[in-house]
Amino acid sequence: MTVRKNQAALTTAEKRRFTDAVLELKRTGRYDAFVTTHNGFIMSDTDHGPRTGHRSPSFLPWHRRFLLDFEQALQSVDPSVALPYWDWTVDRTPASSLWAADFLGGTGRSRDGAVMDGPFAAAAGNWPITVRVDGRDHLRRSLGARGLQLPTRAETDSVLAMPVYDMPPWNSASDGFRNHLEGWRGVNLHNRVHVWVGGQMATGVSPNDPVFWLHHAFIDRLWTQWQTRHPDSAYAPAAATSDVVDLHDPMRPWNDVTPADMLDHRPHYTYDTAA
């Protein structure tokens, strides 16, 4: 059984096996297919049209399934690897071990944002940015630029306290847990973390930065924590909602998985500590 661990608790060997597996997916072209898929949904999910991966109730089950696909790809390279999660309420500065050269590498240099250390730095030659929106082919970051702060535990708890999963109009204007977690409304959790990292993480091609997976693994864990706190609350909408994935509707691009299939993470993985 796959056990997802806090990235801060990984051993040096676990970090190495994770980054090696990521680099192997990159080398074979499988990694970039994930970036392409994500960007396609980012650009086509709209507030007043069909929406599946983002700005909609299926944001959480869609990313749960997307991460499962990626984790299974990693495990096809190295069966010992699981996705770690980044608790940005705790590890909230560029000095975190997450950003050390033996793991993801640090922030970018000021001149052009280029990440200069770690396995994904351009100079190492193993991480060309090929699915991109501009001409730059190197990984970029600007951790905490402009004084932006990562969400605090108190801010995160205030969102976990929201009892209703999602509400009409089921988009970026919605009240409820999903949209506050996603960040289009309120204290802003998920979106703000993308902006804090900067570089490709702030764009539609955000999975170009491997921290994408660790960020979303923590968002996914927060969904589990919300379920534990609100056992009587359910995914919504249940049925007959245009442009939106109802509980038993199939989700693109897989077409054989529904939000209902993704509500329980336990058939797929567990966590290092209780939610």
Binding site: I42, M43, D134, S172, A173, N191, H194, A202, T203, S206
Partner: peptide, 20 residues
Amino acid sequence: LHVMRNADGTWISVVNHYEP
């Protein structure tokens, strides 16, 4: 530049996707 309007009238682009 690929742009999109949010329901509240704010805008995002593919370059600044998460910051209206």
